[in-house]
Amino acid sequence: MALASQKDFFSGLMFTAVGGAFAWGAREYEIGEAARMGPGYFPFVLGILLAILGMVIMFKSFTSGPPGGDRIGAFAWRPMVFILGANLAFGALLAGVPALGLPAFGLVVAIYALVVIASFARPGASLKESLILATILAVGCYVAFVYLLKLQFPVWPAFLTN
């Protein structure tokens, strides 16, 4: 039996593996029953449902797909590196890294770094677009988390607030 869609097969395989891992890991916690759920109930049921969904997708990859098959392309290294790097930079700038002597730069600087670094994942990205998006995101986060939810964390770098 030939694969009609490689993309569907490997995405179904990934869903099955992740769902199985969640269900397997949830066995360490008390699962309980539907009427009295334990802490492992939700991850166990969710893992089983994800694994079943993955198996359905894998089965369909043998039966349906575009004419000539649906091949997997080359691995996209550039987006992976910049998106992961942007998230690491966000965490490091927001909280600081005392072991490296990096102080906390606060929410606003971390959001600008996140958006600008992540924008390099797309070829032909515009710095102007990134700065506009970062400004909108920084204002929205400030309003949501600091003003409305009243969460206490650094918004600006410490050397600007002293």
Rank of each mutant, 00 (worst) to 15 (best):
F75G: 00
L151T: 06
A138Q: 08
L137F: 03
C141Y: 00
E28P: 01
I31S: 11
P123K: 15
A138T: 04
M80K: 03
P79Q: 09
S11D: 02
A74G: 12
V155N: 05
G91N: 08
T63H: 13
G38N: 10
P123Q: 15
I136R: 11
L3N: 07
A35L: 07
P39H: 12
S5M: 05
P39A: 10
P43Y: 12
G140W: 08
A21F: 15
Y41K: 01
L3M: 10
A76Q: 04
I132A: 11
F62P: 01
K150L: 10
T63P: 04
Y41A: 06
S11L: 12
F120W: 07
S11N: 09
G20Q: 03
L148A: 12
M58E: 05
L127D: 12
L46R: 06
V56M: 13
E129S: 15
G25K: 12
P79W: 01
F62L: 04
F59Q: 08
F105A: 13
A51Q: 00
P79H: 04
A144E: 10
A95D: 12
G32H: 09
N162L: 15
V108P: 00
G91A: 09
A158N: 01
I117E: 04
L84I: 12
G19M: 07
G91M: 09
G19A: 02
A86K: 02
T161C: 01
G91W: 12
A118T: 05
A26E: 09
A35Q: 13
L151M: 14
L114N: 09
L49P: 02
V108W: 00
M1V: 14
D8Q: 06
G140H: 02
F9Y: 13
A125G: 12
I72S: 05
F9H: 06
V81G: 05
Q6N: 14
I111H: 05
I136Q: 04
I132W: 08
S61F: 05
A125T: 08
R27H: 15
G54M: 08
V81T: 02
Q152Y: 08
K7C: 05
P43R: 08
I83E: 00
L107F: 02
W24P: 09
S119P: 04
I136T: 09
L49H: 06
L131P: 02
A134S: 11
L53T: 11
T16M: 13
F59P: 02
A2R: 14
V45F: 13
I83Y: 00
I57Q: 03
V109S: 10
A121I: 07
Y41R: 02
V155D: 03
W24F: 15
G20E: 05
L114H: 07
